[in-house]
Design a protein around this nucleic acid. Structure first.
Lengths: 335, 335
DNA sequence: CTAGGCTGGCGAAGCGCTTCGACCGTGGCA
DNA sequence: TGCCACGGTCGAAGCGCTTCGCCAGCCTAG
């Protein structure tokens, strides 16, 4: 265990620098030498000391991920982000240090303490106080989400504007003229969480473009919240024939409430869910959905981070195009 | 940013070792000196280099957490474990490195690479292949769950045996004589996931002790899975009057299926849910539940890990006593 | 008045790795 | 035949911190 690079060098009969170059590949080493070194490494079970390496090379091979570990919204989506980030990080030979979102000092700590090579931050709000902090760090950072002013940081997210439009366009094309959006909880909106606002904007714009009626209702992430939201929709838009649901937790309750109120899906009401596919098909009726490709977004975030770390590429913003998969919950409107 | 301990020492007019001792408190430093040093630190915005510190002290102030980032079961419980671990780690001035469970080599990598001081592993199976690996590491490890043979490692978990018994005892005391357990998905059982098996064992034992009839049905984590499980229960035990549900995802569907089958909760069927309180009260009817104190378990895991790291205390196993909170879903059986 | 102890601080030797410049032998070319 | 270039290897100087041993001064007690 306590084997060092010197032990390896001695065993292989070379200098420590040669071992180092075998490991890093930064200088050419002849095949026989390399093989001897590699054998010694294997036989001794040698593993470089991360701290020593970080000290000497000023690269830690660790990424910080700041995740919102609240339990309120779309936990499984968060999970998928995280797995996407972790698995992608591994392909770049990096590990992931997990920070919680409530700890704004954490970013500074890990960054100025040289614990990480880059930072990835989820759940960005429009005027997120963390963004200026990140911008001041010497490590690159990638935002999952879209602040009002990215301040030179890279961003990546699903194009929620487009998603909102896409949902409306799909429904309008099916002949629906009265469409409601059952959205994020009020608290999320009040935080000005970027994705929620963009979803609403896209929805609103789609409604305007299609020349149909639209209604936006926030929805708490609970059984009663869903009941309330659906009832508000039915009150304010009695002839509604289509729902866009952008709230994963409330989704089952929205469906059951519709049923309780005598609205059959899809005959009376079409439903487009904005959620991962497994959630969409896990409902009693397989739902037409717009995917939240959390895993992919996480992966892209890491790729962008590594591009900056390894090749010093400039920051960029990437918005992933939404995709709608048609299933059993959307049908043409009766006329 | 690139300020070092030497910069601080120079600014404060002391030697580097003095600065170090101010920082660590490992030797007494006079008040005036300490204050000068602290001022210099503050003014320079000095932050020790984590790698250098790890190299010199062989302590990284990082904990590895291996979490099952599958999306199948109780995601929010996993989330709570994670937050428990992360926040507890911070109170010990540690950060958390996140490993995914499918990467068994990850433990060896971070451990022999001296990236972490200790490891915490979730989602332990009865004969988990990772346990012997952990046991061979030079860092202490804490298991969340209970393998057949802990091999000298610390373990912590809810006492699921006791939880199973507690649920049955509560229901039996209310006069129920036909009790079914709607449990974990088959796949979880087949992995011999420790908590699922212990729950069943406790349930079975409780049934035997109370002299009532018991039935165990696995349940997939989906709408259809829940429907199937409930129907199987109703077929095999038509006069069932009480259900213990240990499957968070299926829980809403179990309830709606009961309703569909004309069984009213709690008048016809009492329900005890094994889940966090927020899930229990988020249902249409507030459910009597046995809490899965995930946050606490995560915290305890970290405390046990740090006890071993800091004070070299011996390994131990801690099983947290379950607590049942009575709500609206359990009533006395008709007779 | 001095031996001994105590307090507060200093200096230097690493911790294990990377990396730069230097070196050496070989082969190609003029 | 002589020279240069270059592939392949080595040595040593750090990277920034901790920690051990040591010393200077002061106080107390004999």
């Amino acid at each position: 265990m306590a084997t060092t690079i010197d032990d390896v060098a001695r065993a292989a009969g070379v200098s420590t620098s040669t071992v180092s170059y075998v490991l890093s590949g930064k200088r050419p080493i002849s095949a026989p030498t390399r093989q001897r070194v590699e054998r010694a490494i294997r036989e001794l079970g040698y593993r470089p000391h991360a701290g020593a390496r970080a000290l000497a090379s000023s690269r830690t091979n660790v990424l910080a991920l700041m995740a919102p570990l609240r339990v309120d919204v779309n936990v499984s989506v968060i999970m998928q982000f995280v797995t996407g980030v972790v698995t992608a990080a591994r392909t770049f030979d990096h590990d992931v240090l997990l920070l919680t979102a409530d700890e704004i000092a954490g970013m500074e700590r890990v960054a100025s303490g040289s614990m990480v090579d880059a930072l990835v931050m989820m759940d960005i709000e429009a005027d997120d106080p963390r963004v200026p902090v990140l911008a001041g760090l010497s490590q690159p950072a990638v935002l999952i989400g879209l602040p009002r002013d990215p301040e030179g940081l890279s961003c990546v997210d699903l194009d929620f504007d487009a998603a909102g439009q896409l949902a409306v366009r799909h429904l309008a094309r099916l002949g629906h003229r009265q469409i409601a959006l059952v959205g994020s909880p009020r608290a999320v909106l009040e935080r000005h969480t970027s994705y929620a606002e963009r979803m609403i904007r896209g929805f609103t714009q789609g409604v305007a473009e299609a020349g149909v009626e639209g209604l936006v209702e926030p929805c708490e992430s609970s059984s009663t919240g869903a009941v309330d939201a659906v009832d508000r929709v039915l009150t304010r838009m009695p002839d509604v024939t289509a729902l866009v649901v952008h709230n994963e937790v409330a989704l089952p309750w929205v469906l059951s409430t519709l049923r309780d109120r005598g609205r059959h899906v899809p005959d009376d009401v079409s439903v487009v869910a904005v959620c991962p596919p497994d959630v969409a098909v896990g409902q009693p009726l397989p739902l037409t959905n717009i995917d939240i490709p959390a895993h992919t977004i996480g992966k892209v975030a890491v790729e962008m981070a590594m591009a900056r770390v390894e090749r010093d590429e400039p920051a960029e913003t990437r918005l992933l195009a939404p995709q709608l998969v048609e299933r059993a919950s959307t049908v043409a409107a009766l006329r």
